[in-house]
Each structure stands twice: as C-alpha cells, then as structure tokens.
C-alpha cells in the first residue's frame, strides 16, 4: 500500500504544476453509512486524473463530497488553496468547480438549449455558445428538443457541454462513458483530450480502465472509501495484473 500523504509521484509534464485540488483524509456518510474512510489525493492544474475502483468503492461519493452535495463530510478539500469542506455546493461551484453527475442530470422540463444555458457563468474564460456548438454540432440541431428526448450519448454530450460554458477550471466527470456505444465512448475520449489541451483540469470516475488509459495522466485506485494505490498512466501496462486484481476484471 502506498502512503499518498507523503509520496505522490509527479506525473510527466505536470510535475511543476501546483495542486489545484487537494483532498485530505476525506470522510463522508450517507445517513448512518460511513462511505469514505479518509480519501487523500491531489489533482494538479491541467491534469486528467481518474478514480478507478469497483462498484461501491466510494468514487462517486468522493466526487459528490468534493462538490459539496454530500451532507455529512469531514476532513479537508482545498480548491486553489480555499478550504471547501464546510461550503454549500453553490459556493463551491462559484470557485470554478463543475460537476457532470453519473446520471447526467438532463432536465426533462427544459429543452436542449435551456439545459445548455442553465448553469450560470462562474468565471471568465468559458466557451461561448458557438464554440460549444462547434464541439457538439448535434446539440445545435436538436436545440429545441426536450432534453430527455435525446439519446443516451447525446445526453452525455449535453451534460458535458453545459459545464464548458461556465468557465469552471476543474471538471468532475462521473462515468461519462457508462452504458454508451463504443463509437460514442471514442468521441467522449476525443473531447476529454481537447478539454485537456484547453488547459482544463479533470477528475474522472471510471470503471473502464481501458478508456481511462486513453485520456488520463494518473490513476488512483479506490477501495472501501480509501485510495489504496496510485499508478501513472505510463506505468499502467506494467501494473496491469495488479490493477485487474484491484478491479476484479
């Protein structure tokens, strides 16, 4: 087991960047159930980092805790040095963190354009509507359709697209490839790499490590609400046997 408090290996290319998100000893509860037992990890500016792990390991709860939508949490979550552990989600969003939830959260009572325009701009530097439409031309064609009438892949695109307008610098993407056809998964991979090129920082939850390997710089392995290992993407092949054991694949 690796002590992530002291020995985070720098990833190639991001070594000099300061940590944008620092999570330390994060604990979280749903009612009586204790889900996170001291998550500790960092994401540096411009990195794509994944949380890998089996179902129920606490990946989604970690994301929700960073976003502040889990009621009961302790420990420390610092974003750009600001402690957010006791902030409500709207304040955390205003710092520049945006969340794309696992269930996508497309609003049925809003059309595609309204869904896209819903999140308020929190920082300058976000994409304009035209840029978003360039990246996702399908959304322009279906601008007046009801949000939930889109296909699963289109809904996922919409869920990602709408947080690109806001100027948020840190994106939390929860299983963006779940249940999607391989060709759509490829498109989402392309988009994530484009976002990285734009300088966005991405924390990604994935069960599909083959997909994660195509986009990420580093991977944290999560089990029972703790980080149990950290693997740089370049070392993924060498650690494949170990990883498959962790993930039970």
């Amino acid at each position: 087991m690796l002590d992530t408090n002291t020995s985070v290996r720098p990833s190639p290319g991001a070594a000099a960047a300061p940590a944008l998100l620092e999570v330390e000893n994060l604990q979280a509860w749903y009612g009586e159930s204790h889900i996170l037992h001291g998550m500790t990890f960092q994401v540096r500016r411009g990195e794509v980092v994944t949380l890998l792990g089996r179902n129920g390991a606490g990946k989604t709860t970690t994301m929700k805790s960073v976003m502040g939508v889990v009621g009961q949490r302790t420990g420390s979550v610092r974003y750009q040095g600001t402690e957010t552990i006791s902030l409500p989600p709207n304040k955390i969003a205003r710092l520049g963190v945006a969340w794309c939830p696992e269930e996508r959260g497309i609003f049925a009572s809003l059309n595609v354009r309204e869904n896209l325009m819903l999140p308020p701009v929190v920082k300058p530097g976000g994409m304009s509507l035209e840029e978003v439409y360039d990246l996702f031309p399908r959304l322009k064609e279906r601008a007046t359709s009801q949000g939930t009438k889109l296909s699963g892949g289109e809904q996922q695109m919409l869920a990602i697209a709408r947080i690109l307008r806001t100027g948020a610098e840190m994106l939390l993407l929860d299983e963006p490839t779940e249940g999607l056809a391989p060709v759509i998964v490829q498109q989402i991979g392309t988009i994530i790499r484009q976002l990285k090129e734009r300088g966005l920082t991405i924390l990604l939850v994935e069960q599909n490590f083959r997909f994660a390997a195509t986009v990420a710089d580093r991977h944290y392995v999560v089990e029972h609400g703790q980080v149990i290992d950290e693997i740089a993407n370049s070392e993924l092949e060498r650690n494949r046997a170990k990883l498959e054991e962790y993930l039970g694949v």
Partner: peptide
C-alpha cells in the same frame, strides 16, 4: 425566462441546480 428555467430545473433536481452555483435555498 432564465429565472423560470432555474425554477423548473430545481423542481426536478435541486441538488444539481445548486451544484451549478445557484443559491437554491
């Protein structure tokens, strides 16, 4: 209106709307 869109969205999923930066309470 935009305000109405917030209202409709929050009726469906207040948590997510708040996570977008809207003061839902």
């Amino acid at each position: 209106t935009k305000l109405g869109a917030y209202l409709r969205a929050a009726t469906e999923n207040p948590t997510l709307v708040q996570a977008f930066g809207i003061n839902v309470p």
